[in-house]
Structure formats: structure tokens, C-alpha cells
């Protein structure tokens, strides 16, 4: 961090007062399994034994407060429920503007994940759009959702609103 050096004859009016916190975050058991599967090109979910909903990534059920069971394989195809078009540049941005960021309910899941939608003009993004994961090559995958480069349209007809209205 550098600060333009104040001139030697000017009074000091400001000072750097940075706050820096360094953590080591743990993914925990469920997300460690989830991210391990991501490297292998698979998506895992967990089913709540109480409400039967499938969460991706797996986690304790936020509604029932109980542990989920099993690593449930989830499709890497899904439907765009809602989306936003990003048109404004910001620091650290890596995508070319405008781009689309969407809630995507994967087939077999009850809650959406959030990811880029590519391979489509931003103005053509829409609710109900059928998409699939565009995986990076296995050698380039890491334990992060960036192992999926983006979701791209499958070319299937749009999903009917009634089929995903419960997942908005």
C-alpha cells in the first residue's frame, strides 16, 4: 500500500488506517465433498430427510434445521429462473460487458445456484431459458465453481413458468 508522500512543508491532514483480517476458511464436510465432485465434473446435492428438498451445494436444511443425507447426484442441466444483466464496470471484473448472471435451478435440485450465463446475447437472457454447464477441461478444474466456465443455452424449448415457479 502506498500513499503519495506529503510535501515536507505541508501539514499532515490524513493517515492510512488499514484494517486487514486474515482468515483460513474451512469448506466443512459437505462442501468439501461438493467441491471434490466439481473437480470430477459432477454436481452433488443433499436431501433434507424432513422436507425432502434437495439443496445444492449440500448443507444443513435451513428450514428444518436438520442434517441432510447422502450425496445426491444432480444434473448439470437446468433452467434460468431469474437473472441480472451486468452493464457497469467495477474493480476486479473479468467478464466483458454486458454479461448475464443468473439463478439456475439444476434438474433434480430445489434451490438455485448462481452462475454466469454465456453463449447468448445479454438482451436475449430470459426466465425459463434451458442451460447446461460448460465445464473447463479436467486439467484446469479446481475446487471452485469456476471449474464451470459458464452455463450455456442447450437449445431446448424454454421451460414453462409453472415448472420452476416454486423455486424462485
Amino acid at each position: 500500500m502506498s500513499e503519495p508522500k506529503p510535501k515536507q512543508d505541508e501539514p499532515i491532514k490524513r493517515m492510512l488506517a488499514p484494517v486487514r483480517l486474515e482468515f483460513t476458511v474451512s469448506a466443512g464436510r459437505d462442501k468439501t465433498a461438493f467441491l471434490g465432485a466439481i473437480i470430477e465434473g459432477r454436481i452433488l446435492g443433499g436431501r433434507c430427510p424432513s422436507c425432502r428438498k434437495v439443496y445444492v451445494p449440500p448443507r444443513g436444511c435451513p428450514t428444518c434445521g436438520v442434517e441432510m443425507v447422502g450425496d445426491i447426484p444432480i444434473s448439470d442441466h437446468g433452467v434460468v429462473t431469474t437473472f441480472c444483466t451486468v452493464s457497469i464496470p467495477f474493480e476486479g471484473q473479468t467478464m466483458k460487458l454486458p454479461y448475464v448472471y443468473a439463478s439456475i435451478v439444476l434438474d433434480g435440485a430445489d434451490v438455485p445456484i448462481f452462475h454466469l450465463v454465456d453463449g447468448i446475447d445479454a438482451k436475449d437472457a430470459r426466465m425459463g431459458l434451458r442451460v447446461r454447464a460448460d465445464w473447463r477441461p479436467p486439467a484446469e478444474r479446481k475446487p471452485t465453481m469456476e471449474s464451470i466456465r459458464a452455463f450455456v443455452p442447450t437449445g431446448e424449448p424454454d421451460a414453462a413458468f409453472d415448472t420452476y415457479k416454486e423455486h424462485l
Binding site: 484494517v19 486487514r20 483480517l21 482468515f23 483460513t24 469448506a27 468439501t32 467441491l35 475446487p143
Partner: peptide
């Protein structure tokens, strides 16, 4: 479990 560094600054 997987761990990763995380910096909040």
C-alpha cells in the same frame, strides 16, 4: 475438509 486463505481488507 478443504481450507483456503481469505483476506478481508
Amino acid at each position: 475438509a478443504l481450507t483456503a486463505p481469505y483476506v478481508l481488507e
